[in-house]
Amino acid sequence: MNIVATESQPDLIKIYLLESKAEILKVIRSPGFTLPSLLFPVMFYLFFGVIFTMNAASMPTYLLATYGTFGVIGPALFSFGVGIAIERGQGWFELKEVSPMPASAYILGRVAVTFLFSVFTIILLFTIGAIFGEVRLQREQWLLLAVILTFGSIPFCAIGMALGLYLKSNSAPAVVNLLYLPMAFLSGLWVPINFFPELMQSVANFLPAYHLAQLGLKVVSMDSGQSVWLHIGILSLYLVVFSILALKAYTKKDKQ
């Protein structure tokens, strides 16, 4: 027992790997939660994008990008928003907080889960689109769309994190749903945005899900024609603002 401070560090990479592994194992072992949240967007796409499609030529391709967006932001909002709120309610988050776990490891673990969900959703959607919806894209387009959707979930991780740190565990699922579903609709993830009245279309400009969907639609040349940088800019703004809010909540002392 040496009282003299030893400034040696534990192996950060090992912590990141173990933390991510633990988070992933937690979700894989709870199929009752995992399967419905994976299948929800896929089933929607199958019904509205492929089977009951209004325009078989363009709709499956258009909705592939928007349901892909819908499919990746759900896990981000729920893994962070609801997951953190529940662990806070249990006192488990506090235990992690007083342990020497680096905060970055906690975030990385949940990002890993979100990415895993995203990749699975994307693979399922792409398969259905290609086989049943006869979506025909270049290999680069498939790849670019997958990359945009996967990394596009990051701003939503930040939003989820802030929500998880502010919300109470019993109200978190309801509040997150209340933000997630209307945002998805108003951003044109279920019904193409140009079916909406003008006013609603301009409201969509404030929503991050709209901008991620537009980035995806740009890959298949079906976006509404705004600049890529506008979309990236707004998504980055959401990322920064909500990261700051989360950081503020996290570093705030004297929380209940």
């Binding site: 633990a22 072992r29 249990q90 006192g91 506090e94 007083v98």
Partner: peptide
Amino acid sequence: GAMLQVSGLPDML
């Protein structure tokens, strides 16, 4: 090291 009063811990680990 700290042992706090925790009402639940992640189930599936």
